[in-house]
Amino acid sequence: MPEGHSVHRIARQFDRNIVGRVVSASSPQGRFAEGASVLDGRTATAVRAVAKQMFLEFDDELWLRVHLGMYGAWDFAGEIMVDATIASSNGRMGQTNQRGTELEPDAPILDDAGENSLTSIGAPRRTRVHVRMSEQTTGLADDGEDWPPPVVGQVRLRLLTSVTAADLRGPTACELQTPDEVAATIARLGPDPLVDDVAEGEERFAAVVRRKPTPIGLLLMDQTVVSGIGNVYRAELLFRARQNPHQPGRDVPDEVVRELWRDWVRLLAIGVETGQMMTMDDLGPDDYRKAMASRDDRHWVYHRAGLPCRICGTAIVVEEAAGRKLYWCPSCQA
């Protein structure tokens, strides 16, 4: 499932390539045909990401709400302007590899797990699109393909400008909302470090956690408690805090709760900048490049069931928690 950093990167992609432009909207799959017909011919005016949801505004105060869920993704094709902050650090966005990519001489490391691709952001995806890793891409014309690109697979929504295509596949939610409905949706979400005041977010988060009997490992995944944390960040935040995931939130020391929030502020910023859920600190240059290239070298406990803890050597445990896999060290996090 895409976590908070991916959704913020998607919003940046839309800000550079879709906002301010008239779009043609269609639903090749047919499941969003009515909504697409309402959007068709409108101008995208703003975009914002909150938690794991993106809100794209069109003229007449009409909003498109998209929640990618477990399997959703946005595929981009054509002339793609890369956010300067993102381009400077990694150049690739999302979770896919694409053929024909031409890299600049100082190109970033390419993830063997398929994360951090320019052309697709969300669930793992393969794409046919030819993209150069530069501030202004050359798009499909170099491959001799027609414009717009042919629809491949089950595309819920296609947003098309004169030079850029954005295809949405497999979202949990894709709907039109009024400004009041958008506000109500956001009001139900916990604080997001990239949206809310960080100090106020800390107070909101701490206040909720300290009154909950729910295990802290479940609270971190509750988007009404804190926004954007998914399975990877949950496991890594708890390990970095040496916090037992089963301890009730109200029993977790206040200083630990606050440090969890502050650590989320740090890790989310790194994730948005690099496109990777990098959770290990103080790595030397070689180890850092290795970690950026492979998620197996990027995390403390996530996806390391049965392997020795990097700190104490105890085998990492994996168990089911509310239908999701929870990774933790029973010694360091006792």
Rank of each mutant, 00 (worst) to 15 (best):
E79F: 00
A51N: 10
F58L: 00
G69S: 12
K52C: 02
G78F: 01
H67I: 02
F76C: 05
M81W: 09
M54Q: 06
D60C: 01
F58G: 06
H67Y: 10
M81Q: 12
R65G: 00
E61I: 05
F58C: 02
E79Y: 02
G72F: 07
F58S: 07
A77K: 08
V82S: 08
D59Q: 11
G69F: 13
R65L: 14
D75H: 11
W74I: 08
A73W: 05
A51C: 01
V66F: 03
L64P: 09
F58M: 02
W63F: 15
H67S: 11
G72L: 12
M70T: 14
E79T: 15
A77P: 03
D83V: 08
D59L: 04
D75R: 14
Y71L: 13
G72Y: 09
L56Y: 02
E57R: 15
L56Q: 08
L68F: 11
A77E: 15
D83R: 07
A51I: 02
W63Y: 14
M54V: 14
M54L: 13
M54F: 01
I80R: 05
F76P: 09
M70N: 05
E79H: 11
F58Q: 03
K52D: 08
A73D: 02
D59C: 04
L64N: 04
I80S: 00
D75F: 05
R65N: 08
F55C: 04
E57C: 09
H67R: 13
M81L: 12
L56D: 05
M70D: 07
M54Y: 00
A77G: 15
W63H: 11
M54W: 02
L64Y: 00
L64A: 01
Q53M: 06
G69C: 10
R65F: 01
Q53N: 10
A77T: 14
M70S: 09
G72S: 12
D83Y: 09
L68R: 05
V82P: 03
V66I: 15
V82M: 08
I80L: 11
M81D: 13
D83P: 07
M81P: 00
L64F: 07
I80E: 10
E57V: 02
D75I: 15
E57W: 04
Y71W: 14
L62M: 11
G72D: 06
A77Y: 10
D60H: 13
F58H: 07
Q53E: 14
G78W: 10
D59A: 05
L56S: 06
V66D: 00
V82D: 02
D60S: 12
F55A: 00
Y71H: 14
G78P: 04
A73G: 03
L56M: 01
D75W: 07
L62K: 03
R65H: 14
F55P: 02
D75V: 15
E57N: 08
Q53L: 04
I80Y: 06
F55H: 10
V66T: 13
Y71C: 04
D60Y: 10
D59G: 05
W63E: 07
E79A: 09
L62Y: 03
D60Q: 15
F76T: 10
E57H: 11
L64T: 08
D60R: 14
L68Q: 13
D83I: 08
H67W: 03
K52Y: 04
L56H: 00
G72Q: 08
Y71K: 10
Y71E: 12
G69V: 13
I80V: 15
D59R: 01
K52L: 06
W74P: 09
D59T: 07
A51R: 01
E61H: 11
